[in-house]
Structures are given as C-alpha cells and as structure tokens.
C-alpha cells in the first residue's frame, strides 16, 4: 500500500511539473480531438455545404473551448444544440443568408443570443 501511495504521489508530482508549453500542447491535442468528434457528429445532420463554411469552423473551435472542461456535457449533442442555437444555420439553409457565428448561446453567460428566438429570425419570418 505504501509503495502504491508513493507511485501515485510521484505521478501527480510529474503532472504538476509539466512545463506550461507541455500543458498547452496537451490541451491543444484534446481540443483538436474534440473538434473532430463534434465535426463528425454535425456532418451526420448537416450538408457538406454547411460543413464547409468558415463560420462552421469558427463555431467548432469556440464550442470545443466551451465544452472541454465540462465533464458534465455530452459534447457531441451539445455541439448539435449549440450549432442551431448559436449560429444562423437555419436562415443560411432556408434563405441563403450568410452563415454567421458570434458567441455560444448560454442563457446566463450570453443572454439574448438564442438564435432560435425572434431576435434572430430569418429575414421575412415575421412579415404579416
């Protein structure tokens, strides 16, 4: 038991001792992997033309940052939800508006950015 405790302590110490550059590299790899997983997930639902948009890439990068440190999330499902609520993808598909992304919708951290609310309705949506 004593020996196991010693190993655990020493491996924790090794982690703490990682240089900032190493830690950043590690995080960068995790981010890239998460982006890939979320991209693959979105590609099952959205056409290639949507997946090829620069805003989709920007979204995926921002979403991965948003989700990386949240073990409580199902990241792929979250990516799907946030792609629809944080970008103009519906308007883009339906009316050809540019696909744009600004911020990940979160009712508390970014209130009033729900892209499925009236504020972001596609042009003409609420014309009488």
């Amino acid at each position: 038991m004593k020996r196991r405790a010693f190993i655990a302590t020493s491996s924790a110490a090794a982690l703490v001792a990682a240089t900032p550059a190493q830690a950043q590299l590690f995080r960068g790899r995790k981010l890239a992997a998460l982006v890939e997983r979320c991209r693959a997930h979105l590609a099952r639902s959205f056409p290639a033309s949507v997946m090829a948009q620069p805003a989709t890439e920007t979204f995926l990068a921002a979403y991965a940052e948003h989700a990386l440190d949240r073990p409580d999330l199902f990241p792929e499902d979250g990516a799907f939800f946030h792609f629809l609520t944080s970008t103009t993808v519906i308007a883009h598909v339906e009316t050809g508006e540019d696909l744009s992304f600004d911020v990940i919708f979160d009712p508390h951290d970014a209130p009033c950015s729900n892209h499925l609310g009236a504020l972001y309705a596609p042009v003409g949506e609420h014309d009488a």
């Binding site: 009712p107 508390h108 209130p111 009033c112 729900n114 499925l116 609310g117 009236a118 504020l119």
Partner: peptide
C-alpha cells in the same frame, strides 16, 4: 424578453 428560456431566474 428575448427567449432565453430560463425564466425562473431570468438573467435580464
């Protein structure tokens, strides 16, 4: 109101 959908603690 801007459709945040968390009305029990409306952030705005």
């Amino acid at each position: 109101c801007c459709a945040n959908g968390v009305c029990d603690e409306c952030p705005i």
